[in-house]
């Protein structure tokens, strides 16, 4: 299920013409609403749920809902990016929480 942008948190990446979510989306689906200057996904059907935009958003403004094949609505997968580490929180339909942490950089 495609990304949902929290309009309170999204700041349109400030002056950026192409916000970070737009830059990173492999399907070129994220873009800015010219009026509100907030991001949205312009073709919900085409989203692959790769979560690149979620990880890239500096404001933590994007959330994805999991595709139904993986988990029904209310299940969530949320990444949190540190400098050397990414931590995923997975909350399933019943509210059960699991977390996974990975090193992303080894320099």
């Amino acid at each position: 299920m495609p990304p949902k942008v929290n309009l309170e948190k999204c700041d349109g990446c400030k002056a950026e013409q192409e916000p970070l979510c737009e830059q990173i989306c492999p399907g070129d689906l994220m873009t800015l609403n010219p009026e509100t200057k907030k991001a949205y996904c312009r073709s919900l059907r085409d989203c692959w749920d790769c979560m690149s935009c979620v990880k890239s958003c500096p404001q933590g403004a994007i959330e994805t809902r999991l595709p139904y094949q993986i988990g029904y609505y209310q299940a969530k997968l949320i990444p949190l990016m540190g400098t050397n580490r990414i931590t995923w929180t997975c909350i399933d339909l019943n509210g059960k929480v699991e977390r996974f942490s990975f090193k992303t950089r080894n320099d």
């Binding site: 540190g82 400098t83 931590t87």
Partner: peptide
């Protein structure tokens, strides 16, 4: 303070 550093501290 970059937020990734804050998150790094929490996840560490």
């Amino acid at each position: 303070v970059n937020m990734s550093v804050v998150v790094e501290a929490l996840t560490a």
